[in-house]
Amino acid sequence: MLLRPRHALLALVVLLGTTGAAAWAQPRPVLSITMPSPEQVTKVGPAVVASHMLAGRKLQELLSSGFPARLHFAVELWSVGGWVNDLERVTEWDVVVRWIALENVYEVTQIAGDRPFSLGKFALLSDAEAAVGRPVRASIVAFAGRKRFYYQATLAVESLSLSDLDEVERWLRGELRPAVRGQRSPGTVLGRGVKTLASRLLGGERREYQQRTKIFETVGGRR
């Protein structure tokens, strides 16, 4: 099929417009990092917000299938150098979201420094998503000195660690038992399970977001 250039351009515009409209139909996951005020840059770290992170049909399917969603946050403080930049400080934490079938709730837990901290149990996924999206103040701070810095925030969202086969085994045990007892079609469960597992093993459900602040300066004495 041949198209005149003018028609092709028109078709492209329509296609892009349609795609754009579809993209607006659902909220997009957004990672943001906000600097403190200039007077506070040597006293507090940046605030990190992860919004709409549980949006997406596949991730929600995985959650309801018993795969916990894991959100790994890393915030790095970099200083700007001539040729290369220096990684000065790093802080990391995790947020784990899992479906507790017995209670019909999503449990949201933040884990920082190997210490779990409950952000609550929620009947609605939207409430769990709101808990995930609460702003967190990173515990790293730029130090005084004649240096230029920037923060880099990275968020990796995955439904299950590939290496964590125990989770797969736990899922298989939990998912197949009802089917064996006749509460669910074994074929459906197996089909869904194989599809979900294949999706995980092939790495289709890992998303990554990055945000960087503008370069800022600190003044004053050495740290």
Binding site: A23, P29, G56, R57, L202, G203, E205, R206, R207, E208
Partner: peptide
């Protein structure tokens, strides 16, 4: 494009 996760991305789970 991590703004949408509803597409098949086998193996390309890293930047």
């Amino acid at each position: 494009d991590d703004a949408h996760d509803d597409w098949w991305r086998p193996g390309l789970n890293e930047r």
